[in-house]
Amino acid sequence: MSDGTPGTPSIFEWMGGQAALDRLTEVFYGHVHKDPVLAPVFAGAPAEHPHHVAVWLAEVFGGPADYTASHGGHDHMAARHLGRGITEEQRRRWIALLMDSADEVGLAEDPEFRAVFAYYIEWGTRMALLYSGPNPPPVEGTGSHVPQWGWNQTPPWQPKP
């Protein structure tokens, strides 16, 4: 997805495609597993977890819809967070480590890209907090549509009553 301007790459393309996201999540989860705040949360995560997160992020930022095709889209991602009881401290630490990892792997540093990237990470972690909490919104039937982030736009989110 681009902003509709001919020749404007999607966020996915701008950041370097799937290879860049795989590199980002490998470095990031390497840090997560050593972090005293986050390591317990991800102690039982399978070895392919970093790649699954990279595939999710690819779809979010306008890349191929492989997460939806292989894992069930938004419903699946939301369900992965149910009952996990993520804390605000863990959410903030996740963001800090991911942003540091983006610097470490050399993702684009221009303000426009980083603003879109940071906006999604902030929004996404708040959704994870919501779904992991005591009164999550319904997951089943919310649709498999993965939210898409692009230049100058974000998707509206409306919880089901």
Results as ranks from 00 to 15, higher is better:
13 E>F: 09
13 E>P: 08
14 W>R: 09
14 W>Q: 02
15 M>K: 01
17 G>F: 07
17 G>A: 12
17 G>S: 10
18 Q>C: 02
18 Q>A: 14
18 Q>V: 00
20 A>E: 06
20 A>L: 03
20 A>D: 13
21 L>K: 06
21 L>I: 14
22 D>A: 03
23 R>W: 01
24 L>W: 02
24 L>T: 05
25 T>W: 00
31 H>Q: 10
32 V>W: 11
33 H>S: 04
33 H>A: 00
35 D>W: 02
36 P>W: 09
37 V>S: 01
38 L>I: 02
39 A>Q: 05
40 P>L: 06
41 V>L: 15
42 F>A: 01
43 A>Y: 10
44 G>N: 08
46 P>D: 06
49 H>Q: 02
49 H>E: 07
50 P>I: 03
50 P>E: 01
50 P>D: 03
52 H>P: 03
55 V>N: 08
55 V>W: 00
56 W>A: 14
58 A>Y: 09
59 E>Q: 15
60 V>N: 13
61 F>A: 11
62 G>M: 07
62 G>N: 08
62 G>T: 11
63 G>R: 11
64 P>Y: 10
64 P>R: 14
66 D>W: 13
66 D>C: 07
67 Y>L: 12
68 T>H: 08
69 A>R: 15
70 S>T: 13
71 H>T: 06
72 G>V: 14
73 G>T: 10
76 H>W: 14
77 M>Y: 12
78 A>L: 00
78 A>K: 08
79 A>W: 04
80 R>T: 14
81 H>Y: 11
82 L>Q: 05
84 R>I: 08
84 R>L: 15
84 R>S: 07
85 G>K: 12
85 G>M: 05
86 I>A: 04
87 T>M: 08
87 T>H: 04
89 E>T: 14
89 E>Q: 11
90 Q>N: 04
90 Q>S: 06
91 R>K: 13
91 R>F: 02
92 R>V: 03
92 R>Q: 12
92 R>N: 11
94 W>E: 01
94 W>M: 05
95 I>V: 07
96 A>R: 06
98 L>F: 11
99 M>A: 08
99 M>S: 11
100 D>R: 11
101 S>M: 00
101 S>Y: 04
102 A>L: 06
102 A>C: 03
103 D>G: 09
103 D>E: 15
103 D>Q: 11
103 D>M: 05
104 E>V: 10
104 E>A: 11
105 V>K: 10
107 L>Y: 05
109 E>D: 09
110 D>L: 04
110 D>C: 03
111 P>D: 14
111 P>A: 15
111 P>Y: 01
111 P>T: 13
113 F>P: 06
113 F>G: 09
114 R>T: 07
116 V>P: 07
116 V>E: 15
117 F>V: 04
117 F>K: 09
118 A>M: 02
119 Y>C: 02
119 Y>P: 00
120 Y>A: 05
121 I>T: 11
122 E>C: 02
123 W>Q: 15
124 G>P: 05
124 G>F: 12
124 G>I: 07
126 R>N: 12
126 R>K: 10
127 M>C: 04
127 M>I: 12
129 L>N: 05
130 L>V: 08
131 Y>E: 11
131 Y>F: 15
132 S>E: 02
133 G>Y: 03
135 N>A: 13
135 N>Q: 06
135 N>S: 14
137 P>D: 02
137 P>Q: 00
137 P>G: 06
